[in-house]
Amino acid sequence: MLPMPVRVNVTLTDLSRISRAGLLKGGTEKTMSQNWVGELDMRIASLEQAALDLSGGNQQKLVIAKWLFRNAEVLMLDEPTRGIDVGAKAEIHHLLRRLAAAGKAILIVSSEIPELVSLCDRVLVLWRGRIAGEVRREQLTQERILSLACGESNDSLNAPFRETDEKFLND
């Protein structure tokens, strides 16, 4: 994220798409960044607005836009909705579901359990730096995640980590 215009931020990840022989194509850059702004429903005053002047939610959308601009197939998001308002949060969630439906692989790191429950197809819970268990969409509940996060193992109390680790690797 740069204190530079939205336009510059969106296109920074793949400048080859908006240039020929090292020369920037201003028109292409504007159209392409405008497309992504529209696609992600970002609310900005203009493409020239500095990224730092955007609201938290729009900044998050901008970060996602950057990587979609690069045609990233796998998105890794660390706390994508931390510190942004409810409305924007709902929008980001909606957007992520939409991207997943379009075939993108999305990995989310989050400490907010309701978010994980409403968003994820598969959740891996970490406890003391190791994977404590996996929960699939069908069994996904806040309680399930919370108990794993507190160290209660999936199957047995004696060998909680080894087994789930292997399960994860074989998956």
């Binding site: 530079m4 793949d14 240039s19 690069r70």
Partner: peptide, 22 residues
């Protein structure tokens, strides 16, 4: 007007972000 210039400005703003952008 060039990619080179764009990155000169971008590095001055946030070098790490530019590096992470590849």
């Amino acid at each position: 007007r060039t990619v080179f210039g764009r990155l000169i400005y971008a590095i001055g703003n946030n070098e790490e972000a530019v590096r992470l952008s590849g």
